[in-house]
């Protein structure tokens, strides 16, 4: 089955990945996106994610529908966490199950690129000496 979810709970990457597996697949590619400590030489203390939840879920579901028409894959799961996240905590998981791995890799890469462009979620970087809402460089026009 496919799924798109938003939560403030800790993400269990392995458990999310297992939910996308059908019998005819031989590979799952899972992206575990987590909070980076150093960005462009500056140290982040923690991140805060905020989302326009109903629209974010709609946009995620559109990505799932589109990726399934463009790549030979079976199932997709996307889960994004919101709220305060510490360094190293998982913020987003994208799992793609496919009969063959190369389609799963390509679809997973496409999904994270599109998610960062279209899904209305924002991160605030909190530093020792300030904070800033990150504004996406490749976002939709």
């Amino acid at each position: 089955m496919d799924f798109c979810e938003i939560t403030t709970e800790t993400l269990d990457v392995g458990a999310i990945a297992r939910r996308v597996v059908p019998a005819n697949c031989g590979a799952i590619v899972t992206l575990d996106g987590f909070v980076r400590q150093i960005t462009k030489g500056r140290e982040t203390l923690y991140l805060e994610y905020e989302g326009y939840e109903p629209m974010a879920l709609k946009e995620m579901e559109k990505l799932v529908a589109q990726v399934k028409t463009e790549f030979e894959i079976e199932n997709v799961g996307i889960v994004h966490r919101l709220g305060k996240l510490e360094i190293g905590e998982t913020s987003v998981v994208i799992s793609v199950a496919a009969p063959h791995r190369r389609h799963a890799f390509a679809a997973c890469e496409w999904l994270i690129k599109e998610l960062k462009r279209t899904v209305p979620i924002w991160k605030k970087e909190v530093y020792a000496d300030g904070e800033v809402w990150v504004e996406g460089e490749n976002a939709k026009n």
Binding site: Y49, V92, K116, V119, P120, I121, K123, G136
Partner: peptide
């Protein structure tokens, strides 16, 4: 996402936000 030329209707939910930065 708004296309710009659509007509806004009474009771609509509008949203204004910066370029998204999830992931």
């Amino acid at each position: 996402y708004a296309s710009g030329d659509e007509i806004v209707k009474d009771g609509d939910e509008l949203a204004i936000f910066t370029a998204v930065s999830g992931g």
